[in-house]
Structures are given as C-alpha cells and as structure tokens.
Amino acid sequence: MAVDHATVRRIAHLARIKLEDAEVPHLASELNAILAFIEELAAVDIEGVEPMTSVTPMRMKERPDVVTMGNIADEIVANAPATEDHYFVVPKVVE
C-alpha cells in the first residue's frame, strides 16, 4: 500500500502536526520506505498462530481499590499556560 500526499496530510492533521507543503513529498517517501520494511513480514507463514499483543511472559499487575493519589491540584496545573482556581483554561470548545 503506497502512501500518497493526501494521506500524509491527513495523518498529520489527525496527529495535530503542522506540515509545510514542501515537507510532504519527503515524508511520503519515508513512510513508504518504512511500510516496505514491514511488508517483508508478509512473507512469514502465520497459519494457526494467535495474534500477539505482548511479548512479556508475565500476567498484568493489578492495583487494589485504594485511594493513594490526588490532592495535588497545584502541581497538576503548574505547567499550564493559563489556569483559574485550579482549572485549566483553554480557548472555548463548545459544540
């Protein structure tokens, strides 16, 4: 599957990455090269092999249902460009 210029722009927009028009052809060829590497995997016979979502030979660790964190609103909003009364303040996003 070849990545065309429109797809590059679309992916960039979805990821909220600003692209100059001049960067598009270069990125398209890079993405296509990466996909070509991945294409090599298609040669492997996976008949009867279950899809794998993790390579770690362990079970997921769980946490008990206990409140151990929080009440650090000062720290939570410390890096925000704009805050008020411990709220993050962002440009209006109403539907």
Binding site: R63, D65, V66, V67, T68, M69, G70, N71, I72, A73, E75, I76, V77, D85, H86, Y87, F88
Partner: peptide
Amino acid sequence: ISKAKLFSGASAEFGGEPNSHVSLVDA
C-alpha cells in the same frame, strides 16, 4: 462504582475541588 480510578490511585468520587481527584497518571 469503585473508590479509585481505573488506572490510577486517585479518588473516583463525584465532585470535589477542581483537579483535586487527579494524579500525575490522570494528567
């Protein structure tokens, strides 16, 4: 219904002062 959040130890209780039931994971 749980005391803490799904993936962090911050309180899952309704309400609270703004951003008080927030851990560094949730942020």
